[in-house]
């Protein structure tokens, strides 16, 4: 019951955050220099055609009125049509979002598992060569942009070794599964197409790893720092002094309190990947939301920009709620404090 109340409150709060965000992105989109209608139609379109499009897009109305038109559409899932491709923006989002989601999800899983694993390893062997190797590698991982990893991976595994396909989500000639979730691997499994699943997974690995390496390094560093810190806590000495086996001391009594900061970072990395995946999606020719959004910005495609930013806002809010739930689940102090403040 308490959980439901928490969720209801957070969703209620989120509505205001999203409204604020919508005002912001609407205003930013309108004050960008240049005429969207002219951009959409090209330099050679006659003036009267441009005028008619401006009228259709309510561009001649006052800005608050424009906002109301836009918000009414957005609430109904109608973000208008792309000024560049003339396609329905909502349809574009539905098409591109799952590709990004699949990519970011796998990257998140890889970074979480490997980051926490490496951080634990490093903390257990604190101040030994294992620790030093992990620390140096993770430092390099933090400072190296994802697109550099993408290019290196592409050169090694895509070109030199030829183990993994370089671009796209599926190879030519492999039948795409019927769309259910939009996640190629999941849809292939649902349809029982194992060959398709395998092919889709192979396409997914390189971009996901490229995207994961930075976050992974960050998470490994945080996990190591927290664990090394907690390792010197009295409760660990107590657990050991009472004869509890080392695997339980490490895997339970040390791990759980040490995960709390990592989970927060993991959430931020996960949400951030949606917008940061642009170059990775570009390099691997991945039909994702990040690439779509960046293209929209370069072409001043107002409707698409607004829609993408709003979707990113919803992602951030959702991830934050999930992170709060997980952290609350890990840490009774937070849970009990929240219960007391109600």
């Amino acid at each position: 019951m308490r959980l439901l109340a928490f969720l209801a409150r957070r969703i209620y709060q989120s509505i205001f955050v999203l409204l604020g965000l919508s005002v912001l992105i609407f205003i930013i989109a309108r004050i960008l220099p240049g005429d969207p209608a002219r951009t959409a139609l090209g330099a050679r379109a006659p003036q009267w055609v441009v005028e008619r499009l401006r009228e259709d897009m309510h561009l001649n109305d006052p800005v608050p009125v424009q906002y109301v038109y836009w918000l009414r559409g957005a609430l109904g899932g109608d973000f208008g049509i792309s000024l560049v491709t003339r396609r329905d923006v909502a349809n574009d989002i539905i098409e591109f979002f799952p590709a990004s989601f699949e990519l970011v999800l796998l990257a998140g899983i890889i970074s979480g598992v490997a980051g926490i694993g490496l951080g634990t390893l490093s903390a257990r062997h604190k101040d030994t060569w294992v620790d030093n190797v992990v620390r140096i590698l993770s430092y390099m991982g933090v400072v190296t942009p994802a697109f550099v990893f993408a290019i290196i991976l592409l050169l090694i595994f895509g070109l030199a070794l030829g183990w993994l396909p370089a671009i796209g989500r599926l190879s030519d000639g492999i039948p795409a599964p019927p769309t259910v979730t939009g996640l190629m691997t999941v849809d292939a499994l649902l349809a029982g197409q194992l060959a398709t699943f395998w092919d889709a997974l192979k396409h997914l690995i390189m971009p996901a790893v490229a995207l994961a390496l930075g976050a992974l390094s960050q998470e490994a560093r945080i996990t190591r720092a927290t664990m090394a810190d907690n390792l010197s806590k009295d409760y660990i000495a107590t657990a050991r002094s009472l004869g509890i086996p080392e695997r339980i001391v490490m895997g339970r009594f040390l791990l759980k309190p040490s995960l709390i900061p990592t989970v927060s970072i993991l959430g931020l990395d996960f949400a951030g990947s949606f917008s940061n995946a642009f170059l990775v999606e570009l390099i691997f020719n991945w039909p994702g939301l990040s690439r779509y959004g960046m293209n929209a910005m370069l072409r001043k495609d107002l409707n698409a920009i607004s829609a993408v930013i709003l979707v990113l806002g919803v992602i951030f809010i959702t991830v934050n709620i999930v992170v709060d739930l997980v952290v609350g689940g890990l840490d009774p102090r937070i849970r009990l404090r929240a219960a007391r403040s109600e």
């Binding site: 806590k233 009295d234 409760y235 000495a237 107590t238 657990a239 050991r240 002094s241 009472l242 004869g243 509890i244 086996p245 339980i248 339970r252 009594f253 759980k256 309190p257 709390i260 890990l330 840490d331 009774p332 102090r333």
Partner: peptide, 29 residues
Amino acid sequence: RGPGISMVFQDPTASLNPVFTIGEQLGPV
């Protein structure tokens, strides 16, 4: 450790793991 020699530490607050219940900590002991 445990059945042979066991120890009570100085600070009881620091000696108990903040994210586990008393039962979860006493059980493995």
